[in-house]
Each structure stands twice: as C-alpha cells, then as structure tokens.
Design a protein around this nucleic acid. Structure first.
Lengths: 157, 157
DNA sequence: CTCATTTAGTTTCCGCGTAAACTATTTTCT
DNA sequence: AGAAAATAGTTTACGCGGAAACTAAATGAG
C-alpha cells in the first residue's frame, strides 16, 4: 500500500541533497555539537561558553573597556551588559568607571575571578583538545586553521 | 591631542591567548559570520536559514513525518512545531495527519512551496559557494569535508 | 477487552541575544 | 562658552530556541 511505503520511508535514509555541502548548515550543526560537548564536560562549573570566554579575556587584559571586549568577541552591547552583570553577580568581575571618561566601564577580575580562571583554565583549555571527537589531531588542527581563516581571526580584523 | 594613553590601549591588539584555538569559540564566530552572509545575500526572500533548510528537505522527501525531519536537522520538537507553523502560514507547507497513525503529522510542499524552492534553490545553493569569502575553493572544500566529519554527517548518524 | 506504557506533537514558560530607544558623558564646531 | 553631534552603556520589548508539562493516539501486558 502507499501508506506503508511512506512509513517505511521514515526509517530509510533521508535525502538531504546539496544542503550538506552548505557551510552555514554545517556550521550550525557543528555549533550544536560543540555546545553539547561543552556542557557534557564543563557544565558542572556553572558557566556558559561565552561567559568563560569573557572571563578569560578579562584576565588577559585587565582594565579593558567593556565595549572593547564585546567588540572583540562579537558580542552586542545589550547582551554584554547582561553577561557582565552575571559575572559581577557571581563575584568574578568588577566594574570600574574610569575617572578620565565617566561613560566607560573598565572590567577586571576579582580575586575570586582570578582564582576561578586559574583553577579551571586547564580543563577549559584541555577541553578544546578533547573536543575533537571523531577528528584526528591533524584534522582538528587543519579545521581550526581553516576556521580561523574563514572568520578572519588570524588577520586580527 | 584627544587620546590618553589608556584609550590608546583600547585600540591596541587584545590578547586572547589560547582561546583562539578553541573549536567551540571559532565555531561560534563562524556561525555569526555565516548568519551575516546569509542575510546579506538572501535576506530579501524572507526566510531564515533553518526555514529554507526545512523547506528544502521537505521538497526532497515529501510526506515525511515532522518529527523525522526535526530529528535529522537537529531541531527540537517544540521548535519544529513553530517553524512548521510559520511555513504553513506562508503557504509553503501543508500538514496532513495520516490515516494509519493519527498522531503523526506528514509534511509536504504546497504548489507555492514547490514553486518557491524551484525559483530560489539556485541562489540558495550557489550562495553556499559564494559564501566561502576569504577561503580558496580548495580550502572551502577541505573545511566542508572536515565539518562533515566532525558533525558525523558523513556517516549518516 | 482495558489499563498501563509509549510515542507524536503541542502548549507554556523561560533564558539568550538583538534592535531600538533612552541616559549620561564627552567631543566638536562655531 | 554653548549648541550639536558623537560615544558608552543601559533599558525595553521582541523573536528564537529549548525544557518540562500536557494532550491525543497507538501499543502492550494481563
């Protein structure tokens, strides 16, 4: 019957055509996978990927303006305000308005923030290696290099 | 005259350390870029990336169950309901409850949906090539192959 | 058969990220 | 100096995507 043929089709391989060659599509799927990986390995620390990234960059560049960090990490101002708020709430980050420009907000790690980054940077960074999954070391390195080039991160925008 | 030393520092290169070797971070940045590309080139058609992907897959597999498509495209059920609703609203997709299983919803393209896919598939698919940006053809092919492997899309889950 | 379990989708509610409007401060122009 | 423009962040309102609870229908155990 036509009906049974259709149902059979559900378990059969689904045709996806050339969409599987779409960079945008592949990147979206990769994003989901990377997100899953992150929470499976590092979820216990209670920070989301973007939050740790911001913490990390503040640690490397203490006193940087909030907007500059947002710009660098492609985070929009409105979101950056909330994200920073969360990190302040957790006691990891301190806001400071500079005397020279009272509009600007300069960010730095609190002692607790410093301690947190120090305590967990290894698992966060080593996670970046473990994350490769079904890629060989060589392939992962190649993928990272290509993504850097695609995103323009190698040329320092 | 206008710039203090501190402000100068803001424009100086920002240290990002090993985070630029993080797959998760790079994929997030790549996602943003791919999204921007999509809307710059195809935004006028009024469909978001995920919507066109779903439309495309329905076109290739008419009569497939909604949940099967969601599964394949890593879309969660709750979201799939809304996304399908939007496509139905636009008149591109028809829902049909099969007689054999009245819980299941089978999706197919309406004539308008078929026409839309036909009319725009070239620009959507050729976009996938144009999208490469600062990558050579060779590099883009390599990147796509590596992403397929990373996501497991080559092995058909 | 009929009650429990499983399955397909939907609904409700919530958080993330954004655009647009707004506030406060600095800079520029005359 | 004082008005106009630019800049840094915040607030508000909204859409997307997801988790959990829910509804309806099919399956299974006794």
């Amino acid at each position: 019957m036509a009906d049974s043929a259709l149902q059979e089709q559900d378990e059969a391989p689904i045709r996806m055509g050339d969409i599987t060659d779409s960079l945008g599509f592949l990147i979206r799927i990769a994003q989901i996978k990377a997100f899953d990986n992150f929470f499976a390995n590092l979820g216990e620390h209670g920070l989301k990927p973007g939050e740790f990234t911001v913490l990390w960059v503040i640690g490397l560049n203490p006193g940087l303006r909030q907007g500059t960090i947002a710009n660098t990490l492609r985070i929009k101002p409105a979101h950056m305000t909330k994200l920073t708020g969360r990190l302040v709430e957790k006691g990891f980050v301190a806001r400071a308005t500079a005397a020279t420009d009272r509009r600007a907000v300069r960010l730095s790690l609190t002692p607790a923030g410093l301690e947190f980054v120090d305590a967990h940077k290894d698992s966060f960074l080593s996670f970046n290696f473990a994350e490769k999954d079904n890629l060989s070391d060589d392939e992962a390195a190649k993928l990272i290099a290509l993504l850097k080039k695609f995103t323009g991160l190698n040329t320092c925008h």
